[in-house]
Computed example of a mutant assay.
Amino acid sequence: MRRSDGIAFAVLAALSGASPLHAERPVLAPVPAIDASSAQKVETAIFAGGCFWGVEGVFSHVKGVRSAVSGFAGGPQGQKVDYERVSQGGTGFAEAVRVTYDPKQVSYGTLLRVFFSVIADPTTLNRQGPDRGTQYRSALFPLNTQQDRAAKAYLGHLNKAGLWRDPIVTRTEAFTGFQAAGAYHQNFLTRNPRHPYIQRWDMPKLAAFKAMFPKLYQDRPAA
């Protein structure tokens, strides 16, 4: 389902009084027991959590994040794609966000906690909000052994935490590369705060992040 289709679907559902869309809700995820330490000045992490507008929008407001870039990950290595191709499904790619951050200010484990608390519902298979298809799956793409260890341990932790009624379906996936989306999709939430999709699905996530993690919130988003 394309973003425009999701908006139309939500409007029709509201007019008819139906509620076919999965209601996303913030959940305060636990502090990770295992984190990925780093001696580097800058680290990178890749997250897929449905529409990349909201994923990027929230991460860009996390203190310590240098940049958040919308794009695609998870498909065959070397295959070139764009938004239109990925939106049609079947490419193997998921909408994803590349987060560059200062590990002295924010850790990979903390980013995981924010991701599962307010960005992505880890119990909906190939779906987030109104968007359906493998291109909207939630997935983690560890870039090194420490991230891999931390991500798998945290997913196990979440499975035992009992915070969600349904089982966790988010998985770690091998990283085969990241391709940035076009300029239209970058900083979309910041540039289009009144867009219907942003208002309905993403502004609540940003508000929840600010309320739940006030010490992590930075008012000015990263570039």
Rank of each mutant, 00 (worst) to 15 (best):
V65K: 07
G90T: 10
R25Y: 06
D82G: 03
G54E: 01
Y108T: 15
F93M: 14
R85G: 07
G75W: 15
R132S: 05
V81A: 12
P26I: 00
R127N: 01
V58M: 01
E95Q: 12
A96P: 03
V42P: 06
T124W: 07
G129Y: 04
I34E: 10
T100I: 11
D82P: 04
A33W: 07
V81G: 08
P32F: 03
V118T: 01
V106T: 10
P122K: 00
S70F: 12
G64R: 00
Y83K: 02
S37L: 08
Q146M: 08
V27T: 05
H61Q: 02
G89H: 13
K41E: 15
G92L: 12
F59E: 04
E24Y: 05
T44A: 13
V65H: 11
R85N: 03
C51W: 08
G75R: 13
T91F: 14
S117F: 02
S107R: 11
P26E: 01
F47T: 08
Q146Y: 05
G129A: 06
V97D: 03
P103I: 14
Q79G: 14
S70T: 08
P130L: 09
P76W: 11
Q135C: 08
R127V: 00
G129E: 06
A29N: 03
T145A: 15
Q88M: 12
V31C: 10
E24N: 06
E95C: 13
A29I: 14
K63I: 01
P32H: 09
E84P: 00
Q146H: 15
S87P: 01
V42C: 11
D121L: 01
A94G: 11
F115E: 01
P103M: 13
S107V: 04
T110W: 02
R137F: 13
R98Y: 01
G129R: 08
R25D: 02
L143H: 02
P32N: 02
F47D: 10
Q40W: 12
A94F: 11
C51D: 11
V99E: 05
N144V: 14
I119N: 06
I119V: 10
